[in-house]
Design a protein around this nucleic acid. Structure first.
Lengths: 345, 345
DNA sequence: TCAATTTGCACAAACGTTTACAAAAAATAA
DNA sequence: TTATTTTTTGTAAACGTTTGTGCAAATTGA
């Protein structure tokens, strides 16, 4: 017995009920009253639809309506809890409104990012939410001009006229570095992520400003690293720890970087916070379970996800062009036990 | 200036080139040689397509072909690294073959799961990969009989004739409990997940078998809990810790459970492994960074994801019905520092 | 030169919806 | 009775593809 996918269509229902597909369509899309379908007819059609377990074909629907009630989400790494949380909240919101979510993991590769977006464009998604891999944005430019709806998350391109949502990287880092300084630290290593991208730039600015505020001379060699990944965290930490005089504190500018840092510090046989203090950007469920519980800058991931979806819907549901906006989400310093109070001044 | 999404169609290209849409379609779908299109014509068409930046409308294509080159993925919580990793690998494989991935987070709610699947069905996905929420599977039954292609991950329903992939929960737990016993433990608490589901059942069976093997009498009251979530881990651990005599070891049957357990243990002011030993099912990137590094049962998440996709493709690409198979992926015990050697016998 | 073959391409239908337009049937008015 | 209005439903085109079929034009063979 070979299973055959037998689709129930409007036509099928219309035949069973002895009415036209038009009528069926109108009934089933809730336009019965508007088009003055007889109550009797409406009931019959609905009953048959239920009986046959009818589900509308969104492909056909999308083709006709020129919209698909689905959106695309492209992000660098869904296994990174930061992005996963954002994705989760987008999925939840989308589901509420009956939207489907097309997901693509760009694997930190701009080529795949571009590719994914093109695939999705083919699928006539109604809009995009993108967490861009890096600093490249030419592919968005062109794209955006073609009238595609889009929201950029966790990155900001001043030259791109597109609504964006980012955390307050600048203030977030300042708060962290301030806290280091308040605790007597002045030799503070900063492990940065991807070079030349807005997020990284803002965080570095924060670092510099915090030092400046407290009249601590900037030592460029203490800013190190080139990626938001764990490997960079590991390597950069190793390097920082072998500087002499050694840094007394390290600011890890991502959750993955701090993971690598933790590994390196542990390998070097050093103890946090006695031998080295650590603060990480982006709080994680395990942050307070580490030894010692790690001081982190918390980001409003859930809200970022929800907001991104909302911003996209706003674009989709308006005819007029929405004034481009950049939403900056506040961060918060969670003080735990990974920063030691020292007397070095 | 209002942006208008101007779509480039086959028709448009055909007009520009002075040929029929048929020809354009054939050229662009790589059937030029097969249909003996003149090299010259082919070149012109391709050039124009590129010039106009043509992307085929997959909605129209899907409608005509009755397949969409997209698959649906439904899972209980994309923010859980276990599922996120599976999702990532599915996304990667799908992308390689030009498939799109529809994602839905069912939020551990069977109603949403069912709903999501229906949405996706409307979208004519070519198949499904589902990590079911719980023990309910009626909705799959019906569904599967209609000829939908599907793969079940991380759960197994003996009564459902559907290819499935699970970790070797039974052996995995046995290995863990064995290790506890080898280290002198005999009062071992087991924090279980969702009741009455295959994964949980298998893990409990493993627990019982391991004890039995070593002639340790089973104490049912040491099996506790009702969900794979963190909250249950926390509560159950609290309860276990207040038993007297106290358990010397706890087996947490999920990554989230162990997170909760860690929190509870820390709150109680107890030290791992001195006061209590702990093993967790499912390794995480931070597992070895905890204090102490946590002994875990590692699951082949990447392979599970890749395999799930492959299994689905096998179904999609064959006419014959594939013999239902359950693939059991081996697990491995990673011994770290969360189990204490005690002399209690 | 003419038939047979090959080459190159187009026509038209189909996929399952939605919707502008309009028509038939019923009810009401005159 | 006939004209008018209201109620209820239907016809057909369109969305952008793919593809079975068929038909010219060009080429070849005799």
């Amino acid at each position: 017995m070979s299973k055959v996918k037998k689709i129930v269509t409007l036509k099928r229902i219309s035949e069973e009920c002895g009415v036209s597909t038009t009528t069926v369509s109108r009934v089933l899309s809730g336009q019965a009253t508007q088009y003055r379908i007889k109550k009797e007819t409406e009931k019959i059609v609905k009953k048959m639809a239920k009986k046959l377990n009818y589900v509308p074909n969104q492909l056909a629907r999308g083709l006709r309506l020129k919209r698909s009630f689905s959106i695309g989400l492209v992000l660098p790494d869904i296994a990174n809890p930061f992005f996963a949380t954002i994705a989760k909240n987008i999925s939840i919101e989308a589901h509420k409104l009956g939207y489907s979510l097309l997901l693509s993991d760009s694997q930190d590769d701009t080529k795949i990012e571009i590719n994914s977006i093109n695939y999705m464009k083919n699928r006539v998604v109604d809009g995009f939410i993108v967490c861009p891999v890096g600093q490249q944005f030419d592919h968005f430019l062109n794209f955006f001009d073609q009238g595609e709806k889009m929201v950029i998350v966790d990155r900001y391109f001043p030259d791109l006229n597109c609504p964006s949502i980012i955390s307050d990287n600048y203030k977030g880092v300042i708060e962290g570095i301030d806290y280091f300084i308040e605790n007597g630290h002045s030799r503070i290593g900063f492990i940065q992520g991807e070079l030349n991208n807005s997020v990284n730039d803002e965080r570095i600015q924060g670092y510099k400003e915090a030092l400046n505020k407290h009249n601590i001379p900037l030592n460029d060699s203490l800013i190190i690293g080139d990626s938001f990944g764990e490997r960079n965290g590991y390597i950069s930490t190793k390097l920082l720890l072998h500087r002499s005089p050694r840094v007394t504190a390290i600011f890890a500018s991502s959750n993955l970087i701090s993971l690598g840092a933790l590994r390196a510090i542990s390998e070097e046989g050093l103890k946090i916070p006695d031998d080295i203090s650590l603060i990480s950007f982006d709080d994680q469920p395990y942050s307070d379970l580490l030894n010692p519980p790690m001081t982190t800058i918390i980001q409003q991931k859930e809200e970022i996800g929800k907001l991104a979806f909302k911003l996209l819907m706003d674009q989709i549901n308006t005819k007029e062009i929405i004034k481009t906006q950049v939403i900056v989400m506040p961060t918060k310093l969670i003080k735990r036990k990974s920063v030691k109070r020292i007397n070095e001044y």
